[in-house]
Amino acid sequence: MNPTLGAYRPLRTPMHLAPAWFKVLLLALVSVLMIFVQDMATGVAFASASLALYLSTLPPWRTALKAILWTFLFAAMAAGYQLWRGEWQLGVDIATDLLTVVFLALAVSTATPMSEMLDLLSGVLRPFRRFVPHETIGLMFSLLIRLIPEMVQILGESRQAAMARGVERSPRAILVPAATRTVGFAVDLGQALHARGIADGVVEERDEVVDSELPKSRRARRALESRKARRRAAR
């Protein structure tokens, strides 16, 4: 399972106290900046600063250690490939870019509750509510994050089941049950959203948008209301 999912802890470090928009903006700016940074010393400085920032959020040490080791492993693999091609400078550049961005992302996710991120996303998308269902997209993101550990678990269990049957070398024996179970989980999740009235909220949100654009004339308003009533009845 991804060790960093749900790693948020309510602390009072500077990163925790900073507003979510600032943290996301910082992440976006540094990510873009890293594309242009070619100098090795600057890259290493950025990576070290990001790691220090991540550690300043006081993540659980076991989680932090796992996350750091995995990130270094991936960075080493990326750098190793470039080294093998004889482009060691590019390798170091890629590795420091990766380390900087991942450590900064870890710092942001460890110090920001998901609800704040969703509020931020909803707020950013709110001006575009005529075209984009902003709350739905926020919910979609949280569902996406929620699904990752579930899918990892489903894949692990499918692999174990295949091993138990002695067919662990067959990708089909792992992927087919995993896909079926994932779809089943998604169906259950959909039902749960409906049961908790969260899917109703999405519909309300659409109606709110329609309400804000109600035409001025009484006749046109009545026509729109009756259209909404018909839509509700159809639901």
Partner: peptide
């Protein structure tokens, strides 16, 4: 629901 995992949506 029988399986609470499907009912829980947010990370914490």
């Amino acid at each position: 629901f029988t399986d609470p995992s499907a009912q829980l949506i947010m990370p914490t």
